[in-house]
């Protein structure tokens, strides 16, 4: 059986290429049909803030890549409830509707479920 991989994305979308590169790992895993999960943690939840204007920063929007996740067969998407609350984000109004909002103890159990973990 294929080993499962959880990618924990902790960086804000506009603080450099880290968020995009974390997402690329997940999309590649999805393309290879591997069991892969993605958890948005700490500043990573800011990737899911609605109505971002990438053009104002002369950057490319990450939202198209995020929306591609289900198309790549990546359905295990998670958001840390505490991280969202700390940053004033309403968990019910995030840019990725498919993502499950998890409490701290659920995140502990989540990480435990995966064979390998990459935190970026």
């Amino acid at each position: 059986m294929a080993k499962s991989l959880l990618v924990i994305s902790r960086q804000a979308p506009w603080s450099g290429p880290s968020a995009r590169e974390a997402l690329d790992i997940v999309l590649a895993g999805g393309a290879f049909d591997l069991p892969i999960g993605l958890l948005f943690l700490d500043d990573g939840v800011l990737q899911l803030a609605a109505r971002q204007d990438a053009k104002a920063l002369q950057q490319k929007d990450l939202s198209a890549n995020l929306q591609a996740l289900p198309m790549f067969g990546v359905e295990d998407l998670f958001v840390c409830a505490d991280s969202a609350a700390e940053r004033g984000l309403d968990p019910s109004a995030l840019a990725l509707e498919e993502a499950q909002v998890l409490a701290a103890d659920e995140i502990t159990a989540l990480i435990d479920r995966y064979d390998q973990v990459i935190t970026l």
């Binding site: 294929a2 991989l5 690329d24 790992i25 590649a28 895993g29 290879f32 591997l34 390998q116 990459i118």
Partner: peptide, 15 residues
């Protein structure tokens, strides 16, 4: 490419 990372994840006991 990134496929090599996933391939290594599958192959290894530990990443």
């Amino acid at each position: 490419g990134l496929g090599q990372l996933h391939d290594a994840v599958q192959d290894a006991d530990r990443l």
